[in-house]
Design a protein around this nucleic acid. Structure first.
Lengths: 256, 256
DNA sequence: AATAATACTTCCACTATACGGAAACTTCGC
DNA sequence: GCGAAGTTTCCGTATAGTGGAAGTATTATT
């Protein structure tokens, strides 16, 4: 399913890159893989992989079953939580302000490979609200945050990402061809924000904006049912979104 | 705060061990650290750390702020999610058995820093049930799983964790001083399981037991309304909990 | 604003470290 | 039980990583 993943960037420590490649391949194989599968996916020699895995097993980032299969270990949960908290804590106060001002759920998401990863959420007090959860990953082409992130990139880069990931239609409103999507991205660049209008889920609309100068491409959004999130809502939301995006950008690049 | 962390196990790949040591130190420093802090904590030479971090930054597992400070990167969130799902899948069948036998919601949680992280849940079919969700983190001192995990540790370690995290009273039944809690932990060690009796939420009672020999301190529980989860329930639940904990332990420590 | 102090990054020669071919061993399918 | 596929150990080799020293940026001090 996967092929060579090695990213031999100049000055990188080879064995560290390879160790993380192995973890990524295991994750991509549903969290469980055999030694020979890893060899096929990475192109590395068997003894090399075995030695790297032995190190990861000894440190608790990989577990080995009696199958001899390798699975992601609990040590990674800690690190993942730490990373998630790190990114989310910074955003949460600003997202909470948005929720207070607008009354709808606010999210922050980052580009992760060819998907968006929801890194923080402050839910609204409405009972009817989005059920997206922190840690969930979604497609780029049919979410507000995804399109806001794509609009920051060049057309070529955006096209490469969505064609790589595929463009399944979540609803009848979803874009299904790169051409249609690129047209929307051009509009997003001009007006400065993205709208997801029933594209991800029927009945849900969302206003999203990219966070400038983020280390990883990042966007924030407010979303809710179409009955409440209408054009009038958008007029109120856009300036507030911009303020929040700039505040988060400021915090991300803060120099204390 | 930390000191030398290096785990030079025979046959381990040095640079991989060091890279993960760095990640752990960053996580232990609240998700953010300076290069020189890392040097002090690990005892490694500055150029070595710099090179390792550059690799981690290039691969997205660490971010570098404008401060030049290093923080855990979004790539770790993916891996953590994968590991969490992996652990949950293993437990789910055993938790489902418990739910089938007892008719109440079953959970598995792991120690994560100074909190418990719910890693898996199988809800009961009762409409009135716990609303805890996978991925949610809770305090150690007022949950069944938290107390079961604390009881595995020494009094000193348990005290350090709860004083570090604080002991807010969720209900009038919650323990609020380390002394009271340690007394309960002693009881838990003797009888082999923990009871959360209206401590986390009024009306909810929970029986919990630690999973022996888990790579990370882990516990499982069954919980429900006090009307159903009474002493008679406990008498039925405890042997089944023990069987489930041992089955999970068995699976964790490799069985095909 | 200029200077000192501190922290970070690049350079480079050395050698310890990780690599991978070949062989021994284990498990699985038949 | 036997053969095949997969996994682990061994070990000579050379690559890949190491860290002292020097250079550059950033922050603190006067």
């Amino acid at each position: 399913m996967s092929e060579i993943v090695t990213t031999t960037g100049a000055g990188g420590v080879q064995s560290v890159e390879r160790a993380f490649d192995l973890l990524e391949v295991i994750a991509a194989s549903g969290g469980e893989a055999m030694l020979s599968e890893l060899a096929a996916a990475t192109g590395l020699a068997l003894p090399t992989i075995h030695r790297l895995l032995r190190t990861l097993v000894a440190t608790g980032y990989v577990r080995q079953l009696a199958n001899r299969r390798y699975v992601l270990g609990p040590g990674l949960i800690r690190l993942g939580e730490g990373a998630s908290r790190q990114l989310g804590a910074l955003a949460r106060t600003h997202l909470a302000t948005l929720v207070h001002q607008l009354g709808e759920t606010a999210n922050m998401a980052v580009l992760d490979g060819d998907r968006v990863l929801y890194a923080a959420q402050v839910p609204s007090r409405h009972s009817m609200r989005m059920f997206t959860e922190v840690g969930r990953r979604a497609h780029l082409h049919d979410t507000g945050v995804g399109k806001a992130i794509l609009a920051q990139l060049t057309d070529a880069a955006a096209r490469a990402l969505v064609t790589g990931a595929g463009m399944p239609a979540a609803t009848a409103q979803s874009f299904t061809t790169p051409e249609d999507l690129l047209q929307d991205l051009a509009l997003i660049r001009v007006r400065g924000y993205a709208i997801d209008d029933n594209e991800q889920e029927i009945g849900v609309r969302c206003f999203a904006m990219s966070v400038p100068n983020a280390p990883t491409p990042t966007a924030i959004s407010v979303s809710g049912p179409v009955s409440r999130v209408d054009d009038a809502f958008g007029e109120r939301a856009v300036p507030l979104l911009r303020a929040a995006a700039e505040a988060i950008s400021h915090d991300l690049n803060r120099v204390p």
